[in-house]
């Protein structure tokens, strides 16, 4: 039995300092992805080098079509790179076959989708525990309890997705992403389908997961207000890293985004 007690990390503690950052949770080296050929060739990612620290909440921000989603897919091993490398911990995911990638997805990474993507025929609890069951493991009841409490899902566990609001569904999806205690959780526009109030709620939960539960989250967004919840913002434009903001505020994030647009406009 795993009897680990998760000690909440105080809000004011420097997040990165909570553990020594020996290796970053996720790394990209000269990561390149092109779609199509010849005339129609699109260079969605162009030699990206970036590190994502463990125990941090990082936002990837950029204009629409800048390559945010592509970067995330490659980092998570969902899609194959044209060249370059991507690492989760010390594992190079760019070189793995489907079987090994499935193993990585089961234990090392979690996903939160814009469309929630819960299974309609299962209850909230069944949805949350599904990844562990697919991997053939046993659900850590204590960790499940912690997640449910943190995400405020206590009364909703027996409900099916159709009986839940969008915000609630996304919180269930976050719990599902965290249940296997992955090294990193990727979230692609997690608030894209939510009203601003539910969106804010979901973002605070993501931040609490990092601060209180010691998780690592990489979130893709085009919304400066959402990016401001993160510890750090990585800016991307035209498939290249275009900037880095630590401890962003909505204002600084917006300013960063505007700067990109000005660059692009010029």
């Amino acid at each position: 039995m795993d009897t680990t007690v998760y000690v909440p990390i105080p809000d004011d503690a420097p997040a990165a300092g909570a553990r020594p950052a020996v290796t970053p949770a996720v790394r990209a080296r000269a990561l390149t992805k092109t779609y199509g050929r010849g005339e129609a060739e699109v260079r969605a990612l162009d030699g990206v080098d970036v590190d994502f620290a463990a125990g941090r909440f990082t936002a990837i921000m950029g204009p629409s079509g800048s390559g945010k989603s592509t970067l995330m897919h490659l980092l998570a091993g969902l899609d194959s790179a044209t060249s370059g490398q991507a690492f989760v911990g010390s594992t190079e995911v760019t070189g793995l076959n489907d079987k090994a990638l499935t193993a990585v997805r089961r234990t090392r990474v979690g996903f939160v989708f814009q469309q929630f993507n819960l299974l309609p025929m299962f209850t909230a609890e069944q949805n949350i525990t599904l990844p562990v069951e697919l991997a053939g493991g046993t659900v850590d009841k204590m960790w499940l309890g912690t997640l449910v409490d943190t995400l405020g899902l206590g009364k909703r566990l027996t409900h099916r997705p159709a009986e839940l609001s969008g915000g609630q569904q996304q919180r269930v999806a976050i719990a599902r992403a965290l249940i296997a205690q992955p090294d990193v959780v990727f979230a692609d526009e997690p608030t894209g389908n939510l009203d601003s109030r539910s969106g804010a709620e979901v973002l605070s939960f993501l931040r609490r997961s990092v601060r209180e539960l010691g998780r690592t989250i990489i979130m893709v967004t085009h919304d400066p207000a959402a990016a401001a919840y993160a510890d750090r913002v990585v800016l991307i434009a035209d498939g290249k890293i275009a900037g880095d903001i630590t401890d962003p505020t909505p204002e600084s994030a917006l300013a960063g985004l505007d700067a990109l647009r000005t660059v692009a406009a010029r």
Partner: peptide, 16 residues
């Protein structure tokens, strides 16, 4: 389709 993709993303193997 989307559901199968989701299941694959959260750890369902091809064999499964």
């Amino acid at each position: 389709r989307r559901e199968s993709a989701t299941l694959r993303a959260i750890g369902l193997s091809k064999a499964q």
